[in-house]
Computed example of a mutant assay.
Amino acid sequence: MNFTIVIVSFAIVGIVGLICGMGLGVASEKFKVEVDEKELAVREALPGNNCGACGFPGCDGCAHAIASGSAPVTQCPVGGKPVAQKIADIMGVQAGEAVKKVAMVRCSGTCDKAIKRAKNVGPTDCNQMSVMPGGGDLGCDFGCLGGGSCVKVCEFDAIHVVDGIAVVDKDKCVACGLCVKACPRHIIEMTTYKAKYHVRCMSQEKGKAVKDVCQAGCIGCTLCVKECKFDAIHMNGNVAQIDYDKCVNCGACARKCPVGVIN
């Protein structure tokens, strides 16, 4: 065996490895990404649900926005006040008052109030029913299908189907928004925890057409609009809509509503 060739081969491999190592070291130093220690700390303080309810692509995006100053320390709705306080301490600012939000289902069509046009013997999942001919068995094309697609995505046991419609437990809801995204009829909205009154109907049909399919639907009479002294409720097409920034929870609209759809 020619040991000279073996030694030269090892030497060449070693030199090449040394050169590659030095090159990688120089490259890593030249192209390294600076790590923001505050951003890492903020990310650690966030709950890690990656739900997107904050408006950013997951907790990493939220942490970056908060650390860079483009989002407030109260940006995470899931973490609420405790997380906001931790992040405020990291950022060296005042936490301020985080407005707690919760999901709200805009439908009152319980089994005894909503009229069914047929007996559903097919799929029971909302997303499947919504693409069926006729859109499920409900007479109302805007109401809760009751299949529980929202229930399946909720990680906090905060929403259940009760008497045919989805109902949110305000005290368990963390405003992650997953149920809002899951509802194929888009009848779940985010509102403030302190709001006491909601128009629980999304039908855009007119009075008689609403009454023909549901005894608890908004008939578009506008009495609530006329009754409100704070300009906090208006018509959105044929259904009333509350402006929660103006609403003072006086309950005048609820008392005036002839079908009791504001509650």
Results as ranks from 00 to 15, higher is better:
residue 132 M to F: 12
residue 112 D to M: 05
residue 120 N to K: 01
residue 104 M to G: 01
residue 122 G to F: 12
residue 118 A to T: 15
residue 120 N to S: 08
residue 110 T to C: 02
residue 112 D to E: 09
residue 109 G to P: 03
residue 121 V to F: 11
residue 104 M to T: 00
residue 128 Q to E: 14
residue 131 V to T: 11
residue 111 C to Y: 00
residue 124 T to V: 14
residue 119 K to T: 14
residue 115 I to A: 06
residue 117 R to H: 15
residue 106 R to V: 02
residue 107 C to V: 02
residue 127 N to D: 04
residue 108 S to H: 03
residue 133 P to I: 15
residue 109 G to V: 04
residue 105 V to R: 03
residue 116 K to N: 10
residue 135 G to P: 08
residue 128 Q to H: 10
residue 115 I to R: 07
residue 129 M to N: 11
residue 128 Q to F: 15
residue 115 I to G: 00
residue 109 G to H: 06
residue 113 K to P: 00
residue 126 C to Q: 13
residue 126 C to P: 05
residue 115 I to D: 02
residue 109 G to M: 05
residue 121 V to D: 07
residue 115 I to K: 12
residue 124 T to E: 11
residue 121 V to S: 07
residue 109 G to Y: 09
residue 104 M to W: 05
residue 118 A to H: 03
residue 108 S to E: 03
residue 132 M to R: 09
residue 130 S to P: 10
residue 120 N to E: 09
residue 114 A to T: 02
residue 125 D to C: 03
residue 116 K to Y: 11
residue 111 C to D: 13
residue 119 K to V: 15
residue 126 C to I: 06
residue 123 P to R: 12
residue 120 N to W: 00
residue 131 V to M: 12
residue 131 V to H: 10
residue 124 T to Q: 15
residue 126 C to Y: 06
residue 109 G to N: 04
residue 105 V to F: 00
residue 124 T to W: 07
residue 135 G to D: 15
residue 134 G to Y: 01
residue 115 I to Y: 00
residue 127 N to Y: 04
residue 135 G to V: 11
residue 122 G to E: 11
residue 114 A to H: 07
residue 115 I to S: 03
residue 111 C to K: 07
residue 123 P to W: 09
residue 107 C to A: 04
residue 134 G to S: 00
residue 124 T to R: 13
residue 128 Q to G: 09
